[in-house]
């Protein structure tokens, strides 16, 4: 990955141009032709640096509800309970963490009633309920792009 790649990543993480010829716009910003901008992004995608280029839909923005949940599960049962939890399509992240509350997952559903029904079910099925429901009260920050440091010397302008 060189400096032009880093510049391109910084640009397209923040906002991929929504226009007929996006790579022409990207190329203009970093000073390379459209073809080169496209080949560079394609290489970053094929090289699995870029996971996807698309919209990060906001569950609240489209009127859905999301929450973070935690459970205390005895170590010997955690894999079985994790399987029950992961089976829900509304669970997008599910991790074991180093705490007495050791199973942490996110739960997304069309409304609050569906969230509560899902968490009650998980508690009942696993036998280790109730599931702690920790919906966000206040948001201080969401930053999903990471800035790459661009070297000053040798940077193409």
């Amino acid at each position: 990955m060189d400096d032009i790649d880093r510049k391109i990543l910084n640009i397209i993480q923040t906002g991929f141009p929504v226009t007929e010829a996006p790579y022409e716009v990207i190329g203009e910003k970093v000073g390379v032709p459209e073809d080169e901008a496209f080949e560079r992004v394609k290489a970053l995608y094929d090289g699995k640096i870029i996971r996807r280029i698309g919209a990060s839909f906001d569950s609240r923005g489209i009127g859905w509800t999301s929450t973070l949940c935690a459970m205390k599960v005895p170590k010997e049962h955690i894999e079985d309970v994790a399987k029950i939890v992961s089976a829900y399509p509304g669970v997008t992240h599910n991790y074991e963490r180093n705490h007495e509350y050791n199973l942490w997952f996110t739960f997304i559903a069309p409304d609050l009633a569906a969230v509560e029904k899902g968490l009650k079910e998980i508690g009942d099925k696993s036998g280790f309920g109730p599931v702690r429901n920790m919906p966000m009260i206040k948001k201080f920050k969401i930053k999903v792009d990471f800035k790459f440091k661009e070297k000053k010397e040798g940077a193409a302008q």
């Binding site: 397209i12 870029i50 990060s56």
Partner: peptide, 18 residues
């Protein structure tokens, strides 16, 4: 985007690789 259905339209990286 203007209606805030999505937060961002762009590339998501595999952070481990990056």
């Amino acid at each position: 985007g203007e209606k805030k259905y999505y937060r961002r339209f762009g590339a998501t990286l595999r952070h481990q690789k990056a």
